[in-house]
């Protein structure tokens, strides 16, 4: 079973990202679970959302405490939250930051794989707003191969086009693709 945590700030789409990943994984025949941490959320406060992906029915219904993958949607969270807490030694950390993967590795004293990208800039360039969840999703797919990019693209189109229109959907898909392209690792 693969367990993933997305740490974000309220309003950045951590829940949406975790859920999209689960739904895309389900399309590939996997069993999934996805849920956010429900506390006193408000825009800007640190929030977490989780996804589990497995070959058989996901039976556990507890919080994800030892994820394989952590995605961080806001650079300022590195100071506010211990983002590697519980992350497996061999785990994967994907961070929205202008810093290099090496710098983050050193800063957090983390020995697993680190991937970084400037998801804020990518989302402003593509969607026109600071909505870093889509580039982070693209980066997670590059870092892990848990879901093929095509399937996520189709899932986003299927879920978003009716709600937000073709133009904005295309921009979101572009944000995913740019995140997938630009992410660097160490």
């Amino acid at each position: 079973m693969i367990e993933l945590t997305i740490i974000g700030r309220g309003g950045q789409g951590a829940k949406t990202a975790a859920q999209l990943l689960a739904e895309a994984a389900m399309e590939t025949g996997k069993y999934v679970q996805s849920f956010p941490e429900y506390g006193p959320e408000r825009a800007g406060a640190p929030v977490k959302a989780f996804t589990r992906i497995d070959d058989s029915l996901v039976r556990v219904h507890c919080a994800v405490n030892n994820p394989d993958i952590v995605g961080v949607t806001d650079p300022t969270l590195l100071k506010a939250v211990n983002v590697t807490e519980g992350l497996k030694q061999s785990g994967i950390l994907v961070v929205n930051t202008e810093d290099s993967p090496e710098a983050i590795k050193k800063k957090l004293n983390f020995n697993g794989k680190v991937f970084t990208l400037d998801a804020t800039r990518i989302s402003i360039d593509t969607v026109g707003k600071n909505l870093p969840n889509m580039p982070i999703l693209g980066a997670i797919l590059k870092a892990t191969d848990i879901v093929p990019l095509d399937i996520l693209r189709e899932m986003v189109r299927h879920k978003f086009e009716k709600k937000i229109g073709k133009d904005l959907t295309d921009k979101n898909i572009l944000a995913i693709e740019e995140g997938h392209k630009e992410v660097k690792n160490a």
């Binding site: 999934v32 679970q33 849920f35 429900y38």
Partner: peptide
């Protein structure tokens, strides 16, 4: 059903 744990968790 369990509030949030089941009610707000995506499942297959």
């Amino acid at each position: 059903q369990d509030g949030f744990i089941t009610s707000h968790s995506i499942d297959v």
